[in-house]
Design a protein around this nucleic acid. Structure first.
Length: 905
RNA sequence: GGGUGCUUAGCUCAGUUGGCUAGAGCGUCUGGUUUACACCCAGAAGGUCGGGGGUUCGACCCCCUCAGCACCCACCA
């Protein structure tokens, strides 16, 4: 009994149940294997509170292809899913919601515990959304091993790395400029800053021997250092000297230093520095070991310690007054009223940012503590070596440059963040009773408060509260990338030495977007190599992954970044899945997408691949409705291949297996997808299925179909699994093995003939139209070929062509020598000599053109082959190939000339 | 300012160490309702490979240069 499928493939009808079947079957968990190397990917965790966007979709599609492919090779295959707590993003969403509900300052009003509780509830409510959406994409990841970046075990891992680094003296506390918002009383992350262009006054003041330019005179009370460019001729004789200066608070001293960071064109080419309230100045101060006194307090007023006269005054007011005072003293040279610059504001609350120095925690990247290949190396050096030595391979390789460039400029990593949602820093301070009271009673228990209170207590590392009174834990949390950096091994159970950790680390591939190469990829290499080496694990096993595959961004049809603020061009993957099916979405994200390059996506592309899924479905429907179940079960062997057409399609299938495999293993997913698409549509459907209509071989058809479903499965898992479920196979497709390429299924190629035959058929067609032969149910054509010609050898393929032009082929012994065609239509025999088959003029034109092309090609080939340079320098196989090509071209040219002669007569 | 890409058919893009007359999908046009599929079939038109120069026997590919477009990092005293 043949099998009947429904008339069209409706993805929505099957996808969820297919996924449930996979998950239930246990196929997502790795099968142990003693001899095969495991294949492992840790999924970059999407935000727990997020929804699936195209970035996730492309990542899942790519990773799922690798995972399914490797699983089908019989390797123990593990893909660990998880979600990320997304510290800043999540906390700010919750705070925003609370603000909408009327809680103006959520941190101060709710306090730490209550706010955290709010966030936890929010996460708990939205976490399942993203996980179900990952399932929708067909991700075959192991949900039994799912992780969340705030799991208690993750916290253990985080504390362990912190502990090691602390013991090795890599972690230190130091001052750093932060973006402080005096209005909201909070620090602001760089990506929460908004820059607006503003026209303001730019003042020029006499400052000792030089004129300095500034837009912010109110910060300049205690400036003591003038910086100029070392090559600036104007200031050469000042460099290194100290001067008495008349300034805001009266006489003071200032010295001149030189640094090439100075722009000679800007202002007067000389500036005085204010380290406490400017990032550049702060860095210069660090470099030259200068003092950095605070001028402006955390409320945004001038400090009383700095100036009795202006103390307590808001900066805008102070600025005017200070300028007045300096003008009175004759120090104001001029004011530029047309000065335009960017000012930074907090995008929430729109408060003006005032840079401030605060105590932060850092990781030293230059201290040499890692035992690496027989030497002590710094974090920075190990990061370089891991990629330089090819232990880690980056695809595409051009990102290696970006990576090294970043490391060269790498500074110590600031790991503390002034938010609460995340892993709290495992550091404790013992306060005095009074300080303790102030701290506990303040609404917002923040590290800022500790700065303001000038707490000097020695910080102590501890995973829990130390013995004694008045201990408080550092209120800051760790940079979210600190915990993400451990992802490849913490998800495997580290710091416990679990079976998973022993079996599956390092992971095989890290697949992610190129936009987080610095944030995440480099940090993972850092955390993994440092931590695992410290535990005595070998260099090879302490890297987090062997390959890094970076995909590009998905853009809209105009090439703009897709963002929710432009809903008209923003494509929602879930909506597309609903409309066209997951398989179509996956293909549209894979094909035409090359590593590291951005890709534009638009709906028509997705609908095109929906058509493909349907094509495959219908091809299978045709096949299954004609193959008997028993024949489908029969084991396929070489002796079941009978006709030339069979040999041809089976050969093509072998080529496809090898080529697709090579593509996937070399991370050329687009090529692989394209190749399969092309084979399915243009070879299998257009040719072999058509041939099957007149010459049916159930075994070959079944074999090719099964092989094709397997190879397509990593790309379009749902439709292939659905079709597979009708094949009466014992195993699910997801658990079946990749088709084996076999020598005995490979036969000499014969497709070059197709072109010739296609030409003949189209001639027949036009002739029929010209003769006004009525459409007939049964038309018999007798195509006669010169004996011994390829055309005759390959007569089976002609059957297909006959079919396409509604002709039925009759095998015939009769022969002609002139390539003429005999058609028997409605019992009438129409003999079509070659010259009658064509429109003389058009054909002469066509042939002439083709001959000219051929001649040109031959000339160029002859030139090439007569060229000593070519013969010497080109590889022998290329030369042979060109010779062979020339022979073929000459042959076909003489054929063309003959045809032309024939037509002309 | 430092860095990295991109420019190939009307559109979106391939083009794997330099070697066929430069390809695909979509779109357009022509013809076709053939018992798997109109989410289909057959065919056609359409390209100075951004401009200029160089290296080479040979350049879409390598080098220089110019132009346009993106992105990343740093910065805007």
């Amino acid at each position: 009994m043949p099998i009947e499928l429904e008339k069209a493939y409706e993805p929505g009808k099957y996808e969820d149940q297919v996924y449930a079947k996979w998950e239930k079957s246990g196929s997502f968990s790795p099968k142990p294997s003693s001899d095969k190397e495991p294949f492992v990917i840790s999924m970059p965790p999407p935000n727990a509170t997020g929804t699936l966007h195209l970035g996730h979709a492309v990542m899942i599609a790519l990773q799922d292809i690798m995972i399914r492919y490797n699983r089908m090779l019989g390797k123990p295959t593990l893909w660990i899913p998880g979600t990320d707590h997304a510290a800043i993003a999540t906390q700010s969403v919750v705070e925003k919601n609370l603000m909408k509900q009327g809680v103006k300052k959520p941190r101060q009003e709710l306090g730490r515990e209550k706010l955290l509780q709010e966030i936890r509830e929010f996460v708990a409510n939205s976490q399942s959304t993203i996980k179900n959406q990952v399932r929708k994409m067909g991700a075959s990841c192991d949900w039994t091993r799912e992780k969340y970046t705030l799991d208690p075990q993750m916290n253990t891992a985080v504390n362990r790395m912190f502990k090691y680094m602390n013991e090795d003296g890599l972690i230190y506390r130091g001052g750093r400029i932060v973006n402080w918002d005096p209005k909201m009383q909070t620090t602001v992350a760089d990506d929460e800053m908004e820059y607006i262009s503003e026209k303001t006054k730019f003042y020029y003041f006499q400052f000792g021997p030089v004129v300095i330019g500034t837009a912010r005179p109110e910060t300049k009370f205690l400036d003591k250092v003038i910086v100029v460019h070392p090559e600036d001729k104007r200031y050469q004789d000042l460099i290194g000297k100290e001067f008495e200066i008349e300034w805001i608070n009266g006489p003071t001293k200032a010295r001149v230093i030189a640094d090439s960071c100075i722009d000679m064109e800007m202002g007067t080419g000389a500036m005085s520095i204010t380290p406490a309230h400017s990032l550049v100045d702060f860095e210069l101060a660090e470099k030259y070991n200068l003092e950095s006194p605070q001028i402006i307090d955390f409320e945004g007023n001038i400090m009383t310690e700095v100036s009795e006269e202006f103390g307590g005054m808001p900066i805008e007011e102070a600025r005017e007054k200070i300028v007045e005072k300096l003008e009175e003293r004759g120090l104001l040279i001029k004011i530029d009223h047309e000065y335009e610059h960017n000012i930074a504001i907090n995008y929430r609350g729109k408060g003006l940012i005032e840079p401030q120095i605060m105590k932060q925690w850092f990781i030293d990247v230059n201290k040499k503590v890692i035992d690496w290949k027989g030497a002590k190396l710094s974090i920075k050096e190990v990061l370089q070596d891991a990629v330089n030595s090819k232990m880690i391979n980056i695809i595409p390789s051009r990102f290696e440059k970006t990576y090294f460039n970043w490391i060269d400029n790498l500074r110590d990593w600031c790991i503390s963040r002034q938010i609460w949602w995340g892993h709290q820093i495992p550091i404790w301070y013992q306060l005095t009773a009074e300080q303790y009271k102030t701290f506990i009673e303040s609404g917002e228990q923040s590290s800022t408060l500790l700065n303001v209170m000038k707490v000097e207590s020695e910080p102590v590392f501890s995973e829990s509260k130390p013995d004694g009174d008045h201990w408080i834990q550092d209120p800051d949390t760790l940079d979210t990338w600190f915990s993400s950096a451990l992802w490849t091994f913490s998800t495997l159970g580290w710091p416990e030495n679990t079976e998973d950790f022993k079996n599956f680390h390092p992971t095989s591939v890290l697949e992610t977007g190129y936009d987080i190469i610095f944030f995440w990829v480099a940090r993972m290499i850092l955390a993994s190599t440092y931590t695992l080496r410290r535990e005595g694990i070998s260099e090879e096993k302490s890297i987090p992954f062997k390959n890094i595959y970076l995909h590009g961004l998905i853009r809209d049809r105009r090439g703009k970044k897709m963002s929710k603020s432009h809903p008209e061009t923003c494509i929602d993957p879930l909506e597309m899945i609903e409309k066209y099916g997951t398989d179509a979405v996956r293909l549209s994200l894979i094909i035409g997408n090359t590593p590291g390059n951005d890709m534009r996506l638009y709906e028509e592309k997705i609908s095109g691949y929906r058509n493909f899924a349907n094509k495959l479905w219908n091809a299978s429907r045709f096949a299954l409705s004609n193959i008997d179940e028993a024949d489908l079960q029969k084991e396929f062997t070489a002796d079941l291949i009978t006709s030339d057409a069979d040999r041809w399609i089976v050969s093509k299938t072998q080529e496809l297996i090898t080529a697709t495999q090579a593509d996937i293993e070399n991370f050329r997913f687009s090529d692989a997808g394209n190749r399969l698409y092309e084979f399915t549509w243009n070879i299998f459907c257009d040719w072999y299925l058509e041939i099957s209509k007149t010459q049916f071989n159930p075994y070959v058809l079944g074999y090719v179909l099964k092989a094709l479903l397997k190879m397509l499965h990593p790309f379009t898992p749902f439709v292939t699994e659905t079709i597979w479920s009708h094949l009466q196979e014992k195993e699910l497709l997801i658990a079946s093995l990749w088709p084996e390429q076999k020598e005995e299924y490979t036969f000499p190629a014969s497709e070059e003939l197709l072109e010739t035959v296609i030409n003949i058929i189209s001639l027949i067609r036009s002739k029929r139209a010209e003769l006004k032969v009525p459409p007939a149910k049964l038309i018999k054509a007798n195509i006669v070929a010169t004996p011994g010609s390829k055309l005759q050898e390959q007569s089976e393929i002609i059957i297909k062509l006959a079919r396409l032009s509604a002709l039925e082929f009759i095998a015939s012994d009769s022969t002609t020598t002139d390539g003429s065609v005999v058609i028997i239509e409605n019992g009438i025999e129409i003999r079509l000599p070659m010259e009658d088959l064509i429109d003389k003029e058009t054909e002469i034109k066509r042939l002439t053109k083709e001959i000219a092309n051929k001649e040109q090609a031959i000339k160029s080939l002859e030139g090439k082959l007569g060229n000593p340079g070519f013969l010497d320098k080109a590889p022998p196989e290329v030369v042979d190939g060109q010779r062979e090509k020339l022979r073929e071209e000459q042959e076909s040219l003489s054929g063309l000339i003959q045809n032309l002669e024939k037509i002309k007569n």
